[in-house]
Amino acid sequence: MEQTINVTLRVWRQKNANTDGKFESYPVSNVSTEMSFLEMIDVLNEQLIKEGKDPIAFDHDCREGICGMCSMYINGRPHGPWHANTTCQLHMRAYKDGDTITVEPWRANSFPVIKDLVVDRSAFDRIIQAGGYISVNTGNAVDANAVPVEKQKADSAFAAAACIGCGACVAACKNSSAMLFVSAKVSHLSLLPQGAPERKTRVMNMIAQMDKEGFGACTNTGACEAVCPKEISISNIARLNQEYLSSSFTTAE
């Protein structure tokens, strides 16, 4: 049932990448428990604008949990307290009247803060550009069912393809490792026959780019899997390891 609550937000404010940031507290009153977390921040931002203050900058787009843009680290957990959930799908009924909620940006050297809660995640784009694609010849489209795909592999590939590239895995990992993201993208393509021609070069180039971007190494703690809004399995990381080792050990040069 709808209720209204009062909460205090402790938000990371940072003007730009070159300045130091700090936490600032804002009371937000009469918050409907049916509001999403982002709507609550919208309300606060309108209040800040009316007061002539700088509104809180944050990333968001679809607000239906599928685009991967929202990226808040809420009370010590990426995307807030709910399991398999994005920040935009977090609702204020998760909180009680009088709660203080700490909101931080993703923290990783490879995700520099642009402003307040907005971080630069273009490192993920560059990893995808390094090999997260398949090459398709132009001409008539091939009949969708022409290439047989094993059911189990199709299911695993589909589960991996659910990754929305939000970066919660990096934010949660003590090593700021991007392995869950990269493993989802590699698994998604390499499990399917369409991904087979570039299978070896894909994984080697994507890992090389991941290391170049300054992400850490995986120590299999499982924090990434626990916070992933799309429940990407950590087994994908083991598959990535196998793909990488078998590819890098068997190239001729």
Binding site: W12, E104, S176
Partner: peptide, 17 residues
């Protein structure tokens, strides 16, 4: 690995994950 996050979190994920 430790050097990959220069600015840490105010609230840590800890044992939640």
């Amino acid at each position: 690995n430790r050097a990959k996050r220069k600015v840490g979190y105010a609230v840590e994920l800890g044992n939640k994950g």
